[in-house]
């Protein structure tokens, strides 16, 4: 079998692994003729990621049969800590189970890591109707989440016809971010019915911090007491997270 990918910026690979590390330590990446795909749920079943990276995002993409690669993300990210402006070639040798990451810059570095035999979990799709869909800039969401995490463990999302509000409160104080249709950070707001729901900031913080590097805007979708969907607008692919709601 052949699996060989080339990308202009090694940093993209690093960002992609980062966006998964928010949820899982180990991950199964599937490569097929369409591109790379990952579907993973964190073991506590509070968050889920649905990731696809189309083949057109790569300078070269050669995969002759669907292949699954199990990776320990933390270990791989340790090796990628020192990348800068290099391009990258990925190749997988199925017989030895080793993945090679070749970094090409002013000189060439070759990292080879063992892959893991992981049992891919079957992750059924979620069936949720979202009453609110708000498109915001990733930086606005990231800043809100980090601010909120300083006062609370929970972030509440609320929407009425014209206003989208994120708020958190704790012993230290309160954080409120209110976006109306005139706010530059709010690009679109659709509300079928006024809704509010709360989500764990522990998960939001990890997710938003790592995914903001991959996309400038994100669609925030939710309904009262239903999961949250964060759809980051990545070029040539998709990056969607779901987070389970707090229910009083």
């Amino acid at each position: 079998m052949v699996l060989r990918l080339r990308m202009a910026e090694a940093k993209t690979w690093k960002n992609m692994l980062n966006s998964l590390s928010a949820l899982v330590d180990e991950v199964c990446i599937t490569a097929d003729e369409e591109g790379l795909k990952v579907k993973a749920m964190d073991p506590s079943h509070v968050s889920m990621v649905d990731f696809e990276w189309s083949r057109s995002a790569f300078d070269e993409y050669e995969v002759d049969k669907p292949t699954t690669i199990g990776l320990n993300i933390k270990e791989v990210l340790k090796l990628l800590r020192r990348i800068s402006g290099e391009s990258m070639e990925l190749s997988f040798d199925e017989s030895t189970g080793r993945l090679e990451m070749k970094l090409i810059g002013r000189y060439t570095r070759r990292f080879t890591v063992s892959t893991l035999q992981l049992t891919g979990e079957e992750i059924p799709p979620l069936r949720v109707e979202f009453d609110v869909s708000a498109k915001v800039t990733s930086s606005c969401l990231e800043r809100t989440v980090v601010d909120a995490a300083t006062v609370s463990d929970i972030l509440k999302f609320k929407a009425t016809e014209d206003v989208f509000v994120m708020e958190a409160s704790g012993e230290l104080g309160e954080v409120t971010v209110e976006l109306d249709r005139t706010s530059e950070a709010l690009l679109d707001l659709q509300v079928r019915q006024p809704s509010e729901a709360s989500y764990s900031l522990t998960f939001l913080e990890d997710i938003v911090k790592s995914a903001s590097d991959l996309a400038g805007t994100v669609s925030v979708e939710f309904s009262t007491d239903k999961p949250l969907k964060l759809n980051f607008d990545v070029l040539q692919g998709k990056l969607i997270y779901y987070i389970a709601p707090y229910v009083e």
Binding site: H45, V46, P124, K226, P245, Y246
Partner: peptide, 27 residues
Amino acid sequence: RRLDVRSCIRVLESIGESVKPLEYFEG
């Protein structure tokens, strides 16, 4: 079954019983 200590600590610390896990919303 896959389960790690990090998730367990999250469950015990912040999530507790008030989070409704995602499998309740599976299609």
